[in-house]
Amino acid sequence: MARRTEALSRERIVDAAVELLDTVGEGGLTFRALTERLATGAGAIYWHVANKGELLTAATDAVVGTALAAEPDGASPPDRVRAVALALFDAVDDHPWIAAQLSRGSGQVTTPRILESLGRQVRAMGVPRSEWFSVSTALVQYVVGAATQNAVNGTLPGPSTSREELLGAVAERWEELDPEEWPFTRAIAGQMRVHDDREQFLAGLDLVLTGIAALHPGT
């Protein structure tokens, strides 16, 4: 049994948890399901992970940690921000359950890890130390907020509903609004119908980065 417990590492348990979360969601992540997937006893799992909350935190941190490693060597700070931000966006899109974890602020390590990664680039851009907190937290709030909101928006109402159908339905509702009360919303309804989520995310990120550069022109 000791040899079996050693083989069952915390990393293997977390990887299995991520697979379960991807297939059956948070509600399906149980220690019983894990024991079946890993072909082991519950005691061996509890040896590495105390409870479901700790397991969710570890799974979230594992996926986010992989995304943060996307920072390219030799790139400029803004390009590093774009690479990390897009990797986070894609990670949350691929693992929608992360959205709930990040929205809850759960994860004793995950949120500071994101702040550390993006904050270092804010510092490298030459932002004064007195502005590090406000600039870096605003950047984190945009990246995490936009990524999680996209994951929430991507939750389709039924298995037969495609993204195109969902966007088309939203655009149609906008187009049917009163033209005097909702002129702007009606005007962009066509763009809602055909927009690309990743391009929209990067456009917003560029607005934030341009704002940082404008406020701190010496960067």
Rank of each mutant, 00 (worst) to 15 (best):
H48R: 15
R4F: 10
R80N: 05
R173H: 11
G168F: 09
L86D: 11
V152L: 13
E6N: 12
S117L: 01
E180I: 13
H48A: 13
A83S: 13
R10A: 14
A187T: 00
G65A: 09
T30K: 01
I45C: 08
E175A: 15
E176R: 15
V135Q: 09
G74N: 10
E164T: 12
R163T: 07
V140G: 02
Q191W: 08
D22I: 04
D73S: 11
R193P: 06
L156I: 10
A147E: 02
D93W: 05
R4E: 14
F184V: 15
P112N: 08
S76H: 03
P217E: 01
I13A: 02
G74H: 02
L34H: 05
M125P: 00
G43D: 12
G145T: 14
A189P: 07
E176W: 01
D206E: 15
R173D: 12
W47V: 09
Q200N: 13
D79M: 02
V170P: 00
M1Y: 06
L20V: 14
L102M: 14
S160F: 03
V170C: 03
W132H: 15
A91S: 11
Q121V: 03
V18C: 05
I45F: 12
P77F: 06
A7L: 11
L209F: 06
T219H: 14
E116R: 14
A85F: 07
R123W: 10
A59F: 06
V152R: 10
L215V: 10
A67N: 05
L29Y: 04
Q141Y: 06
D90N: 12
A171P: 01
A203E: 15
A50W: 08
R186F: 07
V24D: 14
Q108V: 14
G158A: 15
L207F: 10
G107S: 05
E172L: 07
E11N: 09
E165P: 04
L167Y: 13
A214Q: 13
E172Y: 00
V18N: 03
L166Q: 11
L209M: 08
E26K: 10
L167K: 08
T110H: 07
V49Q: 00
Q200C: 03
G53M: 07
R80G: 12
T161L: 07
R82K: 13
A17P: 05
G65H: 08
L156F: 04
V144D: 03
A99H: 06
R104T: 03
P96L: 09
F133S: 05
V63H: 02
E165N: 01
L118W: 09
T219Q: 06
R12Y: 00
T137D: 10
I13E: 01
F31N: 01
L215S: 08
L68S: 04
R37G: 03
G126V: 07
R104C: 07
A187D: 11
I45Q: 08
E6I: 11
T219K: 12
N153Q: 07
G218K: 06
P78A: 06
L205D: 02
V144E: 01
A59L: 01
I98V: 15
S9Q: 11
D15Q: 12
E176I: 00
V140R: 08
G126P: 06
A124L: 10
A39C: 08
T23K: 12
P78D: 02
L102A: 04
S160H: 04
Y46W: 12
L205F: 11
W132T: 01
P217C: 03
L68N: 04
S134T: 11
G154K: 08
L139W: 07
L166P: 01
